[in-house]
Design a protein around this nucleic acid. Structure first.
Length: 145
DNA sequence: GCCAACGTTGGC
DNA sequence: GCCAACGTTGGC
């Protein structure tokens, strides 16, 4: 799960312990969090759009999807007039901090491992803020951290 | 700050 | 339903 650290980083999450992952405005990602994410699913916290993009931490889904209320707030950055409380268009989950990786694993390093070359996050032009990875990829990353 | 890649919008 | 124009993402 990507976020820009200038906006909200793994360090912020460590402090807060739990946060709501609001602001998703992409249908593919929405479907994934709404239909597939289950409580206690694990996720990496990925820092994007920063000096050293890469994986920084480990977290889990703490609360399954519920309507993203920032879409209802006229003054919010993520306001969407097409979403309303009766028929919410956007959803979010809450995540809970587990730990930092022992060391961050940069995008460059992810790209250098042959076993990870199918991972969405290393693929060119991928713009989804949340992507799936396989159990093997997950295990591999935890082995090299 | 540039720009490639992609998603979304809206006219037709 | 096509597709050009536009906006956004995110690496570099």
């Amino acid at each position: 799960m990507k976020n820009e650290p200038d906006d909200y980083s793994i360090d912020n999450l460590k402090k807060d312990k739990i946060c709501d992952w609001y602001g998703i405005r992409n249908y593919q990602v929405r479907n994934m969090i709404r239909d597939e994410m289950k409580k206690n699913d694990l996720a990496f916290f990925y820092h994007s759009n920063c000096d050293e993009p890469g994986i920084y931490g480990l977290m889990k889904i703490y609360k399954e999807s519920y309507p993203d209320h920032t879409a209802f707030d006229r003054k919010a950055k993520y306001y969407d007039p097409k979403s309303n409380r009766d028929e919410p268009r956007w959803f979010m989950v809450d995540v809970k901090y587990i730990r930092h990786l022992k060391r961050p694993i940069s995008l460059n390093e992810l790209k250098s491992h042959k076993k990870l070359n199918k991972m969405k996050v290393v693929q060119r032009g991928n713009r989804l803020s949340i992507t799936k990875l396989t159990q093997n990829e997950w295990n591999f990353i935890l082995k090299i951290e």
